[in-house]
Write a protein that binds this DNA or RNA. Structure first.
Length: 736
DNA sequence: TCGGTTCAGAGTATT
DNA sequence: TCTGAACCGA
């Protein structure tokens, strides 16, 4: 049984899968079979009876990863996966808090705020307290609150020594009080509240520590401080944490991830079992050589080198375009050639550093009639009409939810204007009650409308109390007037379709079983009731916003940011916009270890490609409405020369020009130098956009020419060396 | 309450 | 350049 399970694993994978029940750190390189090791480890523990399904806790960051793990396990194991806890940090914390809501100090019907809900709750709070939102932008307050929570700090524990941040701490405290009053929790709160529950409640903690003998973590390099502490707490003294991650693919520091957790884990748990998975099953040699050479420039690494038993494969192709438009034109031609050679479009990815870069590319693809899909964008549960419907459902479940109340109290319009809301908010504040509970305090016409609104909510709650979930949703979107509202709207047809889709989603949704047992198993808490289907559905909507890629359908080219590409792989990959300031991004330079994180990002991008990799950059690019002249990214220079194939002639250090292979007519056109930006701005034989070389600063691009005669100056972008203004009479500039 | 105009800002993102 | 948010007049 277990033989079949282990067949085909390489030595390192086998070693990882069959490790004894001790803390283990698996450094899994890109394409090294990470998910396979993780799932096989679980299957092996169960098949060899070292663990029962109930003893397994597996944590991921995304629902997608959790689903994939569950699916693979069901295929590997004859038993069903029901007893195991496999999910995201947030999903698992939600599950724990539902089971022990009383011990956690939460109402049974607590609702989850997504980021947008959280922001509007904060805006409301600041307004109610008369805060100048110029000085304290709601976004900053949100970041402050989330940052503190992710560090495991309550408002009382945040240390500040300046008046500005002291104020922030006050807002944090007020915000938490508001959430508590309204019975809502944000994403970070799910984790922090769960962590605090386990810290404070010894019986519950012991219960789960005794249950989960094996804690497995995916993408460990992405954990934040609080998540790591949560894991430590669950592991207790005796449980085995099996952490899988890749420090070289840590690209989420900006949202709180702490790669240092890997080294901390190794030290704090005295990990004896560090296993490196370095054999790559994805890419050909030249691609891996490029990735290895690049990442070697990072100083802070645990160290790892990818290798493949496959051949070197094709060289990495490099293309220099005159402008962003020409880069896109070249890309279109190249894609056409690939497709003509029989390559499926869905196996070709176009990657870029920032979303804004997709526009030029989309434009070119659209004109060429090449089908493409852009990842990212609005997800199902984030659509306005869906959020409106969910707000009604939330009010049915919990009338104290002021965020939901304000969202739909006058949508569809029912004559409740800003003044009425103001009066209501005042009454609520004085009475220390929710908006819904203060409705009676508003007199006049507005008050009558408010009363009618509350009656609608109350009757919906009453009448749907015993209906199946889908019927509740159906009644809500009808009785609320949402459907009628969108029927009036010229462009409402799609929104009505989405609302109907919400009914389908509700019909397909079933509450996970097991909550009640979880609670019953602990001494502290009696058996908690199963959450209502509606509560379960609302959590689901908040925790899993749905697909965020354009609709499936025809075979289409894949466009996405490098971040979005993590975890994916393609036959051919284009990494575009490889220019200083863009990739590496200029903002990253101000950050601690910013450049290293950009390099890891580039490493992730390179390792997405199986067979063919293209790198491209443009001499000029339209950015924020202005033409910017950039120079090629330093990352290109960090790649092994021998594995590259330049598709355009290349300016060489010291020597003159070296000509690479011309591709075809279209390439020559695309590579040709850009028109000077304005007029014949040529001075002393120099023009804007021209590449020059300076003895000390190296290669740069002329951004501006000013003055004349002895005062003639040139502003030159030397990339890593920065932008310098040089007197032409003094500076010795070499031109190619 | 809607619709047009003006203005600032523009990095990556899951739950 | 383009987008989203804020603001003002009907």
């Amino acid at each position: 049984m277990s033989d079949r399970l282990l067949a085909g694993l390489n030595d390192q994978q086998l070693a990882a899968v069959t490790l004894p029940a001790q803390p283990a750190l698996i450094l899994a390189g890109a394409g090294s079979g990470k998910t396979r090791v993780l799932t096989t480890r679980i299957a092996w523990l169960i098949t060899t009876r070292q663990a029962s399904p109930q003893g397994i806790l597996a944590v991921t960051f995304t629902n997608k990863a959790a689903k994939e793990m569950t699916a693979r396990l069901s295929a590997m194991l004859p038993i069903n996966t029901r007893g195991m806890w496999i999910g995201t940090f947030h999903g698992l914390c939600n599950r724990l808090l539902r089971a022990h809501h009383r011990d956690a100090g939460l109402p049974q019907t607590f609702q989850i705020l997504d980021s947008a809900d959280q922001l509007s709750a904060i805006k409301r709070l600041l307004k109610a307290n008369g805060v100048d939102d110029e000085k304290y932008p709601p976004r900053n307050v949100q970041q402050f609150v989330n940052g503190a929570k992710e560090a495991g700090l309550r408002s009382g524990a945040v240390e500040v020594d300046d008046p500005y941040n002291r104020r922030m701490v006050e807002f944090y405290a007020l915000y938490d009080a508001q959430c508590q009053r309204e019975g809502v929790v944000d994403f970070a709160e799910l984790l922090l509240r769960c962590y605090e529950l386990l810290v404070r409640n010894e019986p519950i903690r012991t219960h789960y520590q005794q249950r989960f003998a094996h804690v497995l973590v995916d993408e460990f390099q992405d954990t934040n401080t609080l998540q790591y502490r949560w894991l430590k707490l669950l592991a207790g003294e005796h449980n085995a944490i099996f952490a899988v991650g890749d420090d070289d693919q840590s690209i989420y520091a900006f949202r709180g991830a702490n790669v240092g957790n890997m080294a901390d884990f190794e030290r704090e748990f005295r990990v004896r079992n560090v296993i490196r998975l370095e054999q790559n099953y994805r890419s050909h040699g030249n691609i891996l050589d490029a990735a290895n050479a690049l990442i070697r420039n990072n100083a802070r690494r645990l160290g790892k080198n990818l290798w493949t038993s496959e051949g070197t494969g094709e060289p990495v192709r490099v293309f220099e375009a005159g402008s962003d438009g020409l880069e896109a034109a070249w890309l279109v031609e190249e894609v056409k050639n690939l497709v003509a050679d029989g390559q499926a479009r869905r196996e070709i990815a176009v990657l870029y550093r920032s979303n804004a870069q997709s526009r030029v590319i989309e434009h070119a693809l659209f004109n060429a009639g090449i089908p493409y899909r852009v990842y990212g964008g609005l997800r199902f549960f984030e659509r306005a009409e869906i959020k409106h419907a969910l707000a009604y459902l939330r009010l049915i479940e919990n009338p104290a939810d002021d965020t939901a109340f304000l969202r739909v109290v006058n949508f569809p319009a029912r004559g409740i204007g800003a003044r009425t809301i103001e009066q209501l908010a005042d009454a609520a504040k004085t009475g220390g009650r929710s908006l819904a509970a203060s409705v009676g305090a508003v007199a006049g016409k507005g008050g009558a409308h408010l009363a009618a609104f509350m009656q609608l909510i109350d009757s919906l709650r009453f009448e749907t109390a015993n209906l199946p979930l889908a019927e509740i949703v159906k009644a809500t979107i009808g009785r609320s007037g949402l459907i009628d509202h969108y029927r009036e709207d010229k462009e409402g047809a799609e929104r009505i379709e989405n609302l109907e889709e919400l009914v389908n989603a509700a019909a397909a949704f079933t509450v996970e079983e097991g909550y009640a047992q979880d609670a019953a198993g602990t001494a502290a808490d009696g058996a908690a009731a199963l959450p209502s289907p509606l509560a379960g559905f609302l959590s689901h909507a908040a925790l899993e916003a749905g697909e965020n890629q354009a609709a499936e359908g025809q075979d289409a080219l894949q466009l996405m940011t490098v971040h979005a590409a993590k975890g994916l792989e393609f036959h051919a990959v284009f990494i575009t916009g490889l220019e200083e300031g863009l990739f590496p991004h200029e903002n990253s330079m101000q950050e601690l270890d910013g450049l290293e994180e950009e390099r890891r990002l580039m490493y992730v991008a390179i390792t997405r490609a199986r067979r063919r990799l293209y790198l491209s950059f443009a001499q000029s690019r339209m950015l924020h409405g202005q033409t910017r002249y950039g120079i090629r990214s330093r990352f290109i220079a960090e790649l092994p020369e021998g594995g590259l194939k330049w598709l355009t002639p290349r300016l060489r250090e010291g020597s003159g020009m070296r000509f690479g292979a011309w591709h075809d007519a279209s390439v020559r056109a695309a590579a040709s130098a850009p028109e000077p930006a304005y007029g014949a701005a040529e001075r002393n034989g120099l023009r804007i956009g021209q590449t020059v070389r300076h003895a000390r600063f190296g290669e740069g691009v002329i951004v501006r020419l000013e003055g004349s005669g002895a005062d003639a100056r040139a502003k030159i972008n030397f990339g890593a060396q920065g932008v310098k203004e040089l007197l032409l009479a003094i500076a010795r500039l070499e031109t190619a």
